[in-house]
Computed example of a mutant assay.
Amino acid sequence: MSDSQTRRLNDLDCIEKLYFVLSGLSILVTISLSIFKMTTISKSDSDFTFSIVLIRNAIFCTFYVVHGLLKERAYEIVIFMIAIFGILLYSITLQENKVGSWIFIIVAPAEPAYVIFKMSTQEAGTAQGDLVGATIAAGVLALVTRSVLMVLLYFVYRNYGKGLKEKAEW
């Protein structure tokens, strides 16, 4: 597909639609948690400002998900993955939020599933054959990052309630 062509939502297959829905839910949960945080702290708290930045980041993530899927641009999916990593780091320090962590755990398989699907459907003999290597490299990086993220989440979750939140406060 050339850069000028855009697929419609109806052109997405079932796995891509599932990725779109789960990514959207992840973004909505992020925005909801940020708004909740903003209502429970004072406006002079640095977390208030960071929550605003996080909401803005989530809006950009929406662009990267939609544009990445409809234009089939793997690098935008990687940018989305990096943004989600930042959101996860902040959400964990909200942390010790077990509900937020479980929501993330439930929607976490969406990205690896989509990445694996896209890597398995790459065709080396097409006009975009030059991009196959880049797509696979970005996909492998996304899978490694997600795996490390889930391992780190396990260790952080295991230590909830042991005073880590107070130690992480600046």
Rank of each mutant, 00 (worst) to 15 (best):
T126P: 03
T39W: 04
I79H: 11
L54G: 02
E166L: 14
E123F: 12
A142Q: 07
G100H: 11
I136G: 03
I87V: 14
F85A: 12
S26I: 00
T126G: 07
N57F: 05
A168T: 09
F60S: 04
V148A: 15
L12Y: 05
I105T: 15
Y75E: 11
G129Y: 04
G129W: 07
T30G: 04
A83Y: 09
A124C: 05
Y160G: 05
I136A: 00
V21A: 01
Q128N: 12
D13R: 08
V21G: 00
L25Y: 00
D3L: 14
S32H: 09
F50K: 06
G125Y: 02
R158V: 10
L28D: 09
D3G: 12
N159E: 14
Y64P: 01
L141M: 15
D3M: 10
P109A: 04
S51H: 10
S32V: 15
V99N: 02
I103E: 03
D130S: 10
Y114E: 03
H67W: 04
I55M: 12
V66P: 01
L94Q: 14
E76C: 06
G86A: 10
I87M: 08
Q128G: 12
K167E: 13
K118M: 02
Y160Q: 05
Q5P: 06
K71G: 07
Y64N: 08
S42C: 08
T40R: 13
T135K: 06
F117L: 03
I82Q: 00
R73M: 03
I136M: 01
E166Y: 09
S2P: 06
I92S: 09
T6L: 13
T62K: 10
Y157W: 08
F36M: 14
K98D: 15
T30H: 00
R7V: 13
L141E: 14
L94V: 15
A110E: 00
K71L: 04
T49W: 08
G129N: 08
V21H: 00
A113R: 00
L18Y: 02
V156K: 09
L94D: 14
G100C: 13
Q122V: 13
R158S: 11
K165L: 12
L89N: 12
W102F: 15
A138H: 09
L69K: 04
D130T: 08
Y160L: 11
K167I: 14
A113I: 03
F48A: 10
V107N: 01
T145I: 04
D13N: 15
A134V: 07
D11V: 07
D3F: 12
M1R: 03
T135I: 13
L22G: 05
L25C: 05
S32K: 14
G100S: 15
I27E: 01
H67A: 10
V53W: 06
L94H: 12
L143E: 02
V29F: 04
D130Y: 06
V29D: 01
I31K: 00
L9P: 08
V156E: 07
T49S: 13
K98I: 15
Y19V: 11
F155G: 01
S42W: 03
I116D: 00
Y114A: 06
L9I: 13
R7Q: 13
